[in-house]
Amino acid sequence: MKVLAIIPAYNEEASLPVVLREMSNHAGGVDCLVINDGSKDRTAETARAVGVGVVSHPVNLGAGAAAQTGFRYALRRGYDIVIQIDADGQHDPRDIPSLLRALENEGVDAAIGSRFLEDRGYRPTRMRSVGMSFFNGLATILTGQRVTDSTSCFRALKRPVFKFFAEMDYPTDFQDADLRVLMKRAGFRVQEVAVSMRPRLGGRSFINGIVPAYYVFKVSLSILVTLLREAPRLRRE
């Protein structure tokens, strides 16, 4: 099984070395690819310095687009599984084995890390918590499956799933509840796996200022049109 960890990064020179070191310590046998989304700092050089593959967008395209570049890379290079992990250190590479174990189950196409499946001490701010509950509830109703962490991008995907993401009109910014609804409509089976969440090591979240209002609007709209569109039909390889 060829496994690739994709690490979308935008101005993450501070946290990236730590994440990459943890990856080699706790997820040996997994290739790493940093997708540098037009960073203005030394993100790409930092990754190259430790011998990790880097794909650099010539301009900033957004977190979703960076993930999609990773899916396209994995598709071309013949990987079987893609692990997506944040570059800011919030996701703990020690959780990768449990994500991969969930995929060993024949019926599971995607394993998604959840901060809320078990209480591991993560406490979001009040505003954030309200928004998360709203989308978790919505995703739970629409997928008919308990969704506890729809915003999580810490996940392991089997080839049919990341092939689908690589070829579809993947969101360029937020990757949220709309994707959970879409995956359900495409017929993929998703399993949540309990993971720990840590405070970010550096850099800043792109969800701040006016963005939360736009975020709620955009994801809601995206869910609505996902439901209005015909269910996606998957092309076999």
Binding site: G53, V55, S56, V59, A65, Q68, R76, T172
Partner: peptide
């Protein structure tokens, strides 16, 4: 926007 995104991704992959 879609076309620019696809081109930038392709350029990034090819350059790698």
């Amino acid at each position: 926007t879609d076309q620019v995104k696809d081109l930038a991704q392709e350029a990034a992959l090819l350059s790698e």
